[in-house]
């Protein structure tokens, strides 16, 4: 059977201009003053695949390109080259705690986020109580999100996405939210999804998470996949990378050069 998700030769560069122009006025006034741009290579020829029902872990240092990779896999960003082939619907949970309209209460926000994640209003109305209960926010259902703490907002995001997921779940820093009780509920919900055949891609800095939950993992460094293997191998390689052991001296990515972005 074909893999449920394939990343083929993904590359992504960001252009960093020496002078940032973000208004009409700056563009007009800056026409006579040329600005140079620097290219930041975030991902360079990244390929991998995920099998149906598998949990794939992704590790890497801050700024190594993990978040960009997740956004490309989720279809939020476009790669410069390469393609993502998804053979099932994807539900991402990224940038926790900022996906809300602060002027609206929890119920309206659940309806908004749930409906962009593809749930119908009927499904959402039936699931609202369950979502609030999972996030332990029943008492705050009618409170505007602007009065929520960031922890409460993140718990709500997890609760919606865990309910909305249909086949592939993409999680940034799973289980890094909430108190021990909430983490425990997330972990058991995650096991439930895994045993019912859902596919997951999990980014984490926590070697325990990768070892415990992932069938396979990737270590990303400077835009390249430098190690692929089981969770244990990759978690150890990541620890080694952080402590600069030679075991992690994998091929290094090209440093940003003045290459025109496509």
């Amino acid at each position: 059977m074909a893999p449920i998700l394939e990343a083929r030769h993904l590359s992504k560069r960001f252009r960093i201009p020496s002078v940032k122009r973000s208004t009409v006025r700056e563009h007009v006034l800056g026409m006579l003053r040329p600005s140079s741009t620097e290219e930041l290579v975030v991902l360079d020829d990244v390929s991998f695949s995920v099998e149906r029902g598998e949990t794939l872990g992704i590790m890497g240092r801050n700024g190594c390109g993990k978040s960009t990779l997740l956004k490309i896999l989720s279809g939020i960003y476009m790669p410069d080259t390469g393609e993502v082939i998804a053979r099932g619907p994807i539900t991402p949970i990224l940038e926790l705690g900022v996906g809300w309209n602060p002027e609206l209460d929890a119920i309206d926000n659940i309806l908004l986020l749930g409906s962009v994640m593809g749930m119908s209003l009927k499904e959402l109305r039936q699931a609202t109580d369950e979502i609030l209960a999972f996030a332990e926010l029943e008492r705050f259902a009618n409170m505007k999100l602007q009065h929520y703490s960031s922890g409460m907002a993140s718990r709500l995001a997890y609760a919606v996405a865990f309910r909305a997921v249909r086949e592939i779940l993409i999680l940034d820093e799973i289980f890094a939210v909430g108190d021990a009780g909430f983490r425990e509920r997330c972990e058991s919900r995650f096991r439930e999804l895994h045993s019912s055949g859902h596919t997951a891609i999990v980014v984490s800095h926590d070697p325990r998470t990768i070892k415990t939950f992932c069938d396979r993992a990737l270590l990303v460094d400077r835009g390249h996949v430098v190690v692929q293997g089981d969770g244990l191998t990759v978690a150890d390689a990541y620890t080694a990378l952080l402590t600069h052991e030679p075991a992690a001296a994998a091929p290094t990515a090209a440093l940003p050069e003045a290459v025109p972005a496509s």
């Binding site: 082939i85 998804a86 099932g88 619907p89 309806l111 908004l112 409906s115 119908s120 209003l121």
Partner: peptide, 15 residues
């Protein structure tokens, strides 16, 4: 980019 996954979307609810 691959096409959007085949699945019934409920954009009416979002609207």
């Amino acid at each position: 980019m691959a096409d959007a996954p085949t699945r019934r979307h409920h954009w009416g609810g979002l609207v």
